[in-house]
Structure formats: structure tokens, C-alpha cells
Amino acid sequence: MTRWGITIPLTGVPLAQHRELVEQLPDLGYTDAWSAETAGTDAFSPLLLASQWAPRLRLGTAIVPVYTRGPGLLAMSAATLAECAPGRFVLGLGSSSPVIVENWNAAEFTEPYGRSRDTLRFLRAALAGEKVTKEYPTFSVSKFRLERAPEPAPPIMLAALRPGMLRLAAAEADGAITNWLAATDVPTVRAEVGPDTELAARIFVCPTEDADAARGLGRMLISSYLTVPVYRAFHEWLGRGERLAPMHEAWAAGDRQRANEVIPDEVVDELIVHGSAEECRERVQAYVDNGLDTPVIALLPTGDDPAEQVRALAPR
């Protein structure tokens, strides 16, 4: 089926006030609601509410860091949501970033590939109800078994940017989750996971015809995210290294304003979907036309009513 997702919760809207909109999402044409986890809500709670408000939606975490919860707690959190939304929950895992893991959560960000792989393997066994005692390369677990193993066990998708993690997602997970890419980048990513692996991507959408305002917001987001080493490497792999080099130089020099100013308009326009609601829908559809299975809209604030914007961005 054709999927069309939205990121919840919406910026500036209290979580409890999402009920009316979430209840409407399936009738609007949305198939999926996906959460995020940085410094706002946790990834599971908004989906737990949505599981009761909209029983037809597929729900996914994009993503839960593999470092910020112990393996057993991660299994319990996933099992709880899977019980509340049987057959409709997707657990999206990822390594996250040193800022979130180390600076904010007092954990050690080491061996992200290995930790992601080992957490994925542990969760496969734990969510199937197995008793797990195992020395993984990056952690060990002794005699863990879920008291409430979900039936069915949820699929697990892996956040991935470059070939190594994308291939791991294709080989051992049920799909790959990516973000911060242009519609024209999708074939490059698709080539690494193959034709049969579900590929989801969060797409940043700013539904306004004020291009200057959209680009201004886009520049701040791009300089904040794409200066993170994993995203820098991702865009170098995608071929944007030269065009983003001035931004990286200014950022390294501590000149944040200059870093924003030197991001080319065409890079902003590639990575941030903006324009009228109809134009935004067409641009999101271009990702699908290029090989994306599950577009997940992340609505950027414009000052207008975000609920009305979600309704306007629904598939036609």
C-alpha cells in the first residue's frame, strides 16, 4: 500500500490536545504516525496515546537511541506499545548522536555500528519471548525474559545513513529509516538496501509561500544538523561536500551566523520542502516516485495553525 506519515507531536501543540487531529488522520489519508526523541517528548508516550485514539494508524519510533535505555528497558518499552497496538507498531532504533547520548544522557557513545547491531539482535530474541543470556560484543545480558512478550513481535527498523548501516538494516532489520536527504538522493540510498527493504524517511516540510522565511528556518536547521559528523559524512557521500564546505569552515571557526549565510539556496531547497500545500504534497510525492516507501512529514512551524496544515498536506 502507499504510505503517508506524519510526525507527532506537532511543535507548539500540547500532547493532550492532539486527540481530535490524530483521530482524523486515517480518514484524511494518513497511514502512519511516527515520533521522534531528542529533548521534547519521549518516543513512546505520544504513540501510546495515538494507539488508542486512532486504531487504524501504523505507529513507529524514529528513532529510539540504542544507548539511552538499557537493553531490557528498551525491550519492555517496545513490548508495552506493541501490546497496545498489536500488529501496528514498528520499533525504529538508531545510534543517535554524541550530543544526545553523552552530553544529555551521560552515556558513552562508542561503536555505534556495533551497538546498533547488537541491540537489534538482542531485541529480536527478547521480543520473541526468549530468555536471553548472551555476551554481545558491545554489552552483555544475563537471564532476561519479558514477562509480557508481545504477539506478534513488532518489526524493527534501523536508522541508517551510509552504506554500512544501510546494508545492516537490509540484512538484519525489517527496514531502514533515514532523513535529511533530497528526493533525488533516494535512488542512491535505495541502491544500498535493495528493492525489497522498506525505506522510510523523515521529510522536513515548511508549508509557506514565503521562500525567504522557509529558507531562513531551513538554514538554521541545516547548520545545526549537518555539522554533526555523521550527517557531514552522509552528505559528502551524497555529493554535497563541496557546496557545504564553507558552512563547515565557518562552524568550525565558531561563526554560527556566517555558517548559516553561506549555505546555498539550492541546498536548502533540496532538503527543505516549502511552498504552497499543493506544492509541498507534490514534492513529498517525488520522494515516493524516486523509491521511498514511507514518507514521514515533519511539519516545520510557520505561525499558522499546524493542525490545519496537517489536513492540507494530506494525500490527494
Rank of each mutant, 00 (worst) to 15 (best):
E172S: 12
E236M: 03
L47R: 04
L123W: 00
A277I: 10
W4C: 05
P229C: 15
D196P: 05
P301E: 09
E261C: 12
P154R: 07
L28N: 03
L59N: 03
A159T: 04
K143A: 15
Q17K: 13
S116Y: 01
H248D: 02
E20G: 11
R281E: 07
W237T: 05
A160E: 04
Y225T: 12
G239Y: 10
G72I: 15
A200R: 13
S77V: 05
G5W: 09
R162E: 06
G72Q: 11
P9D: 08
A39Q: 11
P187V: 10
P14M: 13
G275Y: 02
Y231D: 01
L199R: 08
E278Q: 12
A252N: 12
Q285E: 13
F139A: 04
Q309I: 03
P207G: 11
P112G: 08
P86A: 09
A159E: 01
I263R: 07
T119Y: 00
V132S: 07
V262Y: 03
I297P: 00
P150D: 08
D293G: 07
L74D: 00
F204G: 00
M165L: 11
Q285N: 06
S96H: 08
D32F: 07
I156V: 09
D42W: 12
E20H: 13
R219I: 08
T178N: 09
M165D: 01
E102W: 07
R258N: 09
Y67C: 11
V193P: 03
P46E: 11
D27T: 11
W53I: 01
V262E: 09
A286P: 00
P195D: 14
M220Q: 13
L181Q: 01
G40N: 08
P65R: 08
P152I: 12
H248M: 01
E111T: 05
R283S: 15
Q52Y: 14
R311S: 04
Q24D: 13
T294K: 04
R69F: 10
A33Y: 10
G92L: 02
P195R: 15
G291D: 06
Y67P: 08
K134P: 00
A259D: 05
Q24C: 04
D210A: 11
D304I: 06
